[in-house]
């Protein structure tokens, strides 16, 4: 089994595709780290607290988020189809290896290759930071480690998707199209669809009351320099009280509306690995003094998706008819 895994690992790391994409990610990361260091310096001299992982440019759509996803996809889309196309799968299965071992070893090999790539990118980035004289603290190193793990999981999710595409497709081209289809579905369509569904379920947002809010001064007539007339609470208690109630009711309805809408759209975005990845990354940077957002759902979705796709590919591969 280890032989298959080693072979898969060797195939992965020696493939030009892997090297090219890893190289691109490394370059982008080095650039974002360089940018991040400047921002980190500026924030530091301004006396602001900034999370250490911010130097990796976590909010940037380039780097790990986009190219990481591509890397994952491109590493897996032809793993099965290529073997089928070259006929090597038959040869492989004629050896005393179980089918499940084959797919497990493919996954392990890819996972190891991804781990190496991410580890190297992160260590090189840390090296650059040291060159700048920034000494990360222990908690910073832990945060970087967590960042690495999350990124690994993220890229592995797309690997699992493409592996699934590879098991169901007849050839590599179809597999690549299917894999990219899933990518587009999870990255763009699902969030948009979630928004549409939420809108249709919840309906239009509540309208604000026609009266001005009680504490707001009445604006002066345009063009004039008339003094701002402040509504004196003591003068018009009845109207003021009524306006206050109306506004309170409106604010309550508005909050409820957005809460409902977010609940529906979140249900869809939990299926989006990108959304989950970003949500989990941003929770890394936060310090306990701020109220942390609950990312449990995102974590569940983040872990569930690769597992589901891997199980699906596993089942499909085991039942596959090899001609």
């Amino acid at each position: 089994m280890s032989i298959v895994a080693k072979k898969e690992f060797a195939d992965q790391i020696s493939s030009k595709r892997f090297l090219a994409l890893a190289g691109v990610i490394l370059l982008i990361t080095v650039y974002t780290v360089y940018q991040g260091v400047q921002g980190f310096y500026n924030a530091y001299t301004a006396g602001m607290e900034r999370p250490f992982v911010s130097i990796f440019g976590i909010s940037s759509s380039l780097g790990f988020m986009t190219f990481g996803a591509f890397l994952g996809l491109l590493m897996g889309f032809d793993l099965v189809t290529k073997e089928k196309e070259e006929g090597s799968l038959k040869t492989l299965l004629s050896h005393p290896v179980y089918r499940d071992s084959v797919i497990n070893c493919k996954a392990i090999g890819a996972f190891a290759a991804l781990s190496i790539a991410i580890f190297l990118i992160l260590t090189i980035s840390l090296g650059i930071l040291l060159l700048y004289g920034i000494y990360p603290s222990f908690s910073d190193v832990v945060d970087v480690f967590k960042f690495g793990v999350l990124t690994l999981a993220y890229t592995f999710t797309f690997f699992a998707i493409s592996l699934f595409a590879s098991t169901i497709a007849r050839n590599s081209g179809t597999a690549l199209i299917i894999a990219f289809g899933f990518l587009i579905l999870f990255m763009a369509i699902l969030p948009i669809f979630g928004e549409i569904v939420a809108q249709s379920i919840v309906g239009p947002p509540p309208r604000p009351p026609s009266v001005p809010p009680p504490s707001m001064p009445v604006p002066p007539p345009s063009g004039g320099s008339a003094p701002v007339v402040k509504i004196d609470e003591g003068k018009m208690p009845a109207e003021n009280e009524e306006a206050k109630k109306l506004w309170e009711e409106y604010e309550r309805q508005r909050d409820e509306y957005w809460k409902k809408k977010r609940a529906v759209s979140d249900t869809f975005s939990i299926l989006s690995p990108t959304t989950n990845y970003l949500a989990l990354l941003s929770s890394l940077g936060t310090r306990p003094i701020f109220e942390t957002k609950d990312t449990t759902k995102n974590l569940i979705g983040f872990i569930a998706l690769p597992v589901i796709f891997f199980i699906l590919s596993y089942i499909k591969f085991l039942r596959m008819d090899i001609v």
Partner: peptide, 26 residues
Amino acid sequence: AALIGGAVIVISFLVLLVIYRKFGRR
């Protein structure tokens, strides 16, 4: 600091090279 930073980068590349050398050959 610069020394360590440089060393980390060099070691990273060395590790990559070693892995590549070890597994890159069929």
